[in-house]
C-alpha cells in the first residue's frame, strides 16, 4: 500500500511567540520549528501500515526552505521519499490554496491512502485535509482515533470521536483522506541508521507547472481569505480565583477543567 502523509512544520508549541512587525504573522527568526504534533501520529500510523503491507510512505509538505528539516526527519523515521512544495508561488496560502496544491502533488503519486493530522498547531484551520479530499474526490474522515486497513486493502475501519464523547465507527472506501488525532499511537524515534539512510533518499521539488497549477490558483494569489492581523488577546481578563478549602478548590478546579477548559 502506498500512503502519502501530509506534514506541516510549525513553531514549537513551547516556544515564546512574538508578532512580526507587519502584524500579519509571528516573527520566525530564532523560532524553533517542529513537525506538527498530530502529523507525527499520522506518519507513525502510515509507517506501521506500510510495514504490514510491504508498502511505502511518501511525505508531502508545503512550506519554505526550513521545511527540509521536517522532511529529513520523516525520511529518517522510515518514509521512502519526500515531495517539497518549496517555490515561493506556493507559499502564504489559505487552506483552500494550500489544499489545492497538496492535492495536485498527491494526485501524481498514485497513492491508496492520504494520512494527515487533524489540525495544525499554529493556525489551526483544521480544513486542509478536507480540501485535499474535495480536490481528489475521495471520502474523508476527521478527528480519527483509530484506523484499521481491512482485508484486501480496499476499505478502512475508522474510529472517530463525536462531540458527545461517544465514538463513531465506520467503514470507508479507499482511496481516502484520513485526518488523525494526536495520541492514537506511539510515534517512534528515528534510529541512527534511519537518519544515515535518509541522506540518500530523494526529496522532489516540483514547480507549480509540474503539477499543472497556475500561479493564480495557489499561495497568497490563490487564497480567498486575507489575514488582516494576528495579535495576542488583551490580558487581564478571564482569570478566576477559586475560593474555599483545598478539597473544595480541587473539586471546583476539576469540574472547570472538565466542563469549561475541557482538558480532562
Amino acid at each position: 500500500m502506498r500512503i502519502a502523509v501530509c506534514i506541516k512544520q510549525v513553531p514549537d508549541t513551547e516556544a515564546r511567540l512574538r508578532v512580526r512587525k507587519d502584524g500579519l504573522w509571528v516573527e520566525e527568526e530564532d523560532l524553533p520549528f517542529v513537525i506538527n504534533e498530530s502529523d507525527n501520529y499520522a506518519l507513525e500510523e502510515a509507517l506501521t501500515i506500510a510495514e504490514k503491507t510491504a508498502g511505502e510512505v511518501v511525505v508531502v509538505s508545503l512550506g519554505p526552505e526550513r521545511v527540509k528539516d521536517a522532511l529529513r526527519k520523516a525520511l529518517a523515521l522510515g518514509a521512502s521519499r519526500a515531495v517539497h512544495l518549496a517555490e515561493e508561488a506556493f507559499q502564504g496560502g489559505d487552506a483552500l490554496a494550500t489544499g489545492r496544491a497538496l492535492a495536485a502533488a498527491i494526485a501524481g503519486q498514485e497513492v491508496d491512502l492520504v494520512l494527515t493530522g487533524s489540525q495544525s498547531d499554529d493556525v489551526g484551520y483544521g480544513a486542509t485535509g478536507s480540501v485535499i479530499a474535495g480536490h481528489l474526490g475521495w471520502p474523508h474522515a476527521w478527528l480519527v482515533m483509530g484506523l484499521e486497513i481491512e482485508e484486501g486493502g480496499t476499505s478502512a475501519r475508522v474510529t472517530r470521536e463525536m462531540e458527545s464523547g461517544m465514538n463513531e465507527i465506520f467503514r470507508l472506501q479507499l482511496p481516502a483522506v484520513i485526518e488523525v488525532q494526536a495520541g492514537i499511537n506511539h510515534p517512534r524515534y528515528a534510529s541512527l541508521k534511519g537518519i544515515m539512510a535518509a541522506k540518500r533518499k530523494p526529496i522532489e521539488r516540483p514547480s507549480p507547472a509540474d503539477l499543472g497549477l497556475e500561479a493564480s490558483q495557489i499561495g497568497a494569489a490563490g487564497s480567498r481569505l486575507e489575514v488582516l492581523e494576528v495579535a495576542f488577546p488583551d490580558s487581564g481578563e478571564g482569570a478566576e480565583m477559586l475560593e474555599g478549602d483545598a478539597a473544595t478548590m480541587a473539586r471546583t478546579l476539576v469540574e472547570k477543567l472538565q466542563r469549561e477548559a475541557r482538558v480532562l
Partner: peptide, 14 residues
C-alpha cells in the same frame, strides 16, 4: 550536518 542534528534530537527525545 542534518544527520548530526537529527541524531541529537532523536537521542534527546529518547
Amino acid at each position: 550536518s542534518d544527520e548530526a542534528r537529527l541524531a541529537r534530537d532523536a537521542v534527546r527525545a529518547f
